[in-house]
């Protein structure tokens, strides 16, 4: 009944926004909170209920990088690759985290849908470089050890296992 509850929530979101096409972005944001991504059939439904074309909704959903059309993991890790973080070797953090999570090149979400790892172009936290965000929390002045420790904590909490063999 989980999917059903979510769909009712979508109907609610659309109604709360007065079925107003000018409210498309807030509607998509709220839907993404529910699903953690924007499913195609839900976007088609949104287009229908706002009286606009699905192509327009798809255009908006793909324009903003914070919207995603692919299901994301429970925890979203965004590593900053802005100039300041980049020169502070933030991509090393990215590589280490991907290795820990056993993500192969081109894959950003693990098969258990627990983690999604992404890079972003600037978090605006340049003074804290290198920085990353886990879910809503910003972590700065990271070292590879500190970054891994944060990930390992989540793995322990989620799986109850030691992190060494995650995804193996």
């Amino acid at each position: 009944m989980e999917t059903l509850r979510k769909f009712e929530r979508v109907c609610e979101i659309v109604d709360q926004n007065g079925r107003n096409e000018a409210r498309l972005i807030p509607i998509l944001q709220a839907i993404q909170v529910e699903y953690r991504y924007l499913p195609e059939e839900i976007l088609t439904f949104v287009a229908t209920s706002l009286g606009i074309s699905p192509a327009r909704v798809f255009g908006v959903a793909t324009f903003y990088s914070l919207f995603t059309l692919k299901p994301k993991g429970k925890h979203v890790i965004r590593i900053c690759n802005g100039t300041a973080c980049h020169v502070k070797q933030s991509m090393d953090l990215y590589d280490i985290i991907c290795t820990r999570l056993n993500l192969v090149a081109g894959q950003d979400t693990d098969p258990d849908m627990l983690f999604t790892v992404e890079t972003v172009n600037c978090l605006g936290a340049c003074g804290l470089a290198p920085a990353m965000v886990i879910n809503e929390e910003v972590y700065g002045q990271l070292t590879p050890e500190r970054a891994l420790a944060l990930i390992d904590d989540i793995i322990r909490k989620e799986t109850g296992n030691e992190p060494d063999h995650y995804g193996a």
Binding site: E40, L43, T44, V57, F58, T62
Partner: peptide, 15 residues
């Protein structure tokens, strides 16, 4: 309609 952004922008049917 237009989809995606910057150098990845394309004109495409929905999805």
């Amino acid at each position: 309609d237009f989809a995606y952004r910057g150098m990845h922008t394309v004109v495409t049917p929905s999805f």
